[in-house]
Design a protein around this nucleic acid. Structure first.
Lengths: 231, 231, 231, 231
DNA sequence: TATGAATGAGCGTTCATTCAT
DNA sequence: GATGAATGAACGCTCATTCAT
């Protein structure tokens, strides 16, 4: 119970609900939300059609539950990045970030259809879900922004807009992962991809010894969003 | 008359088909693909239901046309990045990249609902469309990869996997744009956002004078994808 | 309860499916297949539109069911012709054939609209149905061909091609019945019509004592179709 | 013009109308009436959609024209049977009937799809067409009934109900032809089939020297239908 | 005559949801 | 709780027919 208490509200294992969610996850991933009927789900779960409505008010709701579960898992992995102690070696931060990214990538690669599903259909279906997704991105971005601020304080990173940078970092990973997902990936093995992306994120592309084209340009220390707490 | 009919063919013909596409674009953007009925579209376009099927075989087809148009515009803008002459000042490259990114961002901001639509529903609807999107990303990535190679040859950029990097760059912009799209953007004005992202992409985050955490790690000069032309 | 539910299964179940078939039979007979909508049927059956698709996959299917039922009844009646014992008086055969034909005629006259329906629309609607009809004719013809062979062995009938003759006999009855069906029948009462047709079939028209115009012509004792059992 | 004046009313060769009818005949025969659209027809005829309605008021009408043409041809062939001179040798009658039947069979075999079409869809489509078909049968039956009466007066045939017998004869041929039409016909060649059927019709099946089962039964000299002219 | 774009009534079918048992 | 028969609104699509040019 401890381990899988990510459910929703029920604490006892309501076998039926779990069966339905599993069945739905598979079917949605295979055929998409609109192509999957409630009957498909109940049939796959081995229950009667009406049973579905004992556990969910609407078809949407089960989709929402599935996406919520997925986001929870991702968030949990993402959170690990911040688990460092303040006394650790500075470079340990990069190490941990890399480990996390790798774990995430593997999660997606292991659940391609589900990952695709989340991308394909989770937006625009339901205002509540939309908000959930936006919140998710914000939360992940906040985690990353916090990391960045810590690294800045350690003198590891230059000044920048942490939230903007965080979103950009998320996007980098996101697109690379998505590409890996459905393209016969001629890409290098995950571990190397991750390292390359990390390097890109934190190191940039500029050749060492080359003058920065940005150095002399005005880069205002803007304040972004709700991160306006007295830093 | 010949000339007239020629002009007619060019100015007047928009007529029905164009009306339908416009109406559909608006409706899809507002309510989404599944929530918009063919009748909604024809009503908004001021034509009879059957007229729709004079111009499109299926409902899907009009959606596809809309997305294709959008992608074409984006691709056109993206292509400008490569229009530089070989003799230009090295920094002109960064300048142009920035201009392009800014134009793109503005396109999206000016067409928020449409941009959202493309993101929300264009994947998973139709194999042909899926392929179109994938192709789109690949093409954009190839343009960027080419840019990167050029800059590498100019000694402006360090070595890396151009395609992987290109996808990462796309993702950065994508996610930032998407965030700008539907969040009450506390972000700085577009021009500054763009500059920040560009700097991030090409410059990285590492503080100057700080040792690179990647310097000493194995970064194999991998060959990615079909870009294996004899460099 | 067991016995009750058993009876229920036998008496009550007609319910929806039977209602639909009855309603459809009436409507198809009245207005034809294409002029009858699924909604017409469900309305007449007193159920909701969707209920139709609980019992039939397509509109066609209910038509097929109706025709199949009719053919079954006809086949059952037709089969009775062969129920004679080998020891019966030779003329009993003709007697029985006549009884059967009469029964058939009455079946059709009692169900004129349905009979017309079967004739009007059952061919060309569906390959499966087409095949069903062809098979039906073949089966009936085979029954009659068997009868003929038996009568030949008894010395009652001359030599001929049993299958060809069987089809001809079917046609005679068919056309006469069809004529009776929708013509203000100035024909004699069924019983006499049947006798006349039977006489025609087995006796021909030639005046007694008249030379046969065929006697001297080459009438090859052909073998028709698969009836090639060792005669 | 003389030869093909079977058209309808137009005397000049309205190329378009003929084109449409030809195209429709082919298409109806191939795909059936309901499966053929007006556009199919106009496309095949090489004219615009609207042109159809210059020559026909409705889709039905062209179908009707096609069937009418076919029935005319059949009737023309059928009429030949009566063309004998009163002084001819009695057996010449049978000879001619046989020739006619053969011609008819060949007409059908040469136009299988059209023949099938007429059978499949011509009934129940339109009251006018229904009546046309009924009239057709009646007319053909009347021709045959007249033949029978002549032969009776010549002493060639026994007494019977000419109209009833005529319908029965039509049915014999009809069913045999229809069977030949779509069954991989293991039947003998047309000429032999025709002879066998003719013999069946006029000679019956009873073995010579066998007592007639009908002889002693009451066979009232009934009066059928409109043939009640003072014989 | 001839065209073909436009029409719009109409139909078969689907499926989320309900509810009596 | 569990069932599954029943519902009915809704939708995509077809096609005979019209009519301005």
């Amino acid at each position: 119970m401890t381990r899988m208490s990510l459910r929703t509200k029920e604490t006892a294992p309501p076998s039926r609900r779990v069966d339905l969610v599993s069945a739905a996850r598979t079917l949605f991933a295979e055929k998409g939300y609109h192509e999957t009927t409630v009957e498909d789900i109940t049939r796959a779960a081995g229950v009667a059609k009406g049973t579905f409505y004992l556990y969910f008010d609407e078809k949407r709701q089960i989709f929402l539950a599935i996406i919520r579960d997925l986001l929870d898992v991702i968030k949990a992995i993402g959170a690990e990045i911040g688990h460092g102690s303040p006394t650790e070696h500075p470079l340990a931060f990069f190490e941990r970030a890399e480990q996390t990214a790798l774990k995430l990538l593997e999660l997606f690669l292991d659940n391609r259809p589900l990952a695709r599903l989340a991308y394909r259909e989770s937006m625009g279906m339901d205002p509540a879900l939309d908000e959930m997704i936006r919140t998710f991105y914000r939360e992940v971005a906040e985690i990353e922004a916090r990391n960045i601020r810590v690294a800045q304080q350690l003198g590891l990173l230059r000044e920048c807009s942490p939230m903007l940078t965080a979103y950009a970092h998320i996007g980098m990973i996101e697109r690379v992962v998505l590409t890996l997902l459905d393209e016969p990936p001629d890409f290098p093995p995950p571990a190397e991809v991750v390292r390359e992306v990390m390097r890109l994120a934190y190191e940039g592309l500029r050749a060492p010894g080359t003058p920065s084209p940005y150095e002399h340009l005005p880069m205002p220390t803007f304040r972004v969003q709700a991160e306006a707490e007295p830093s």
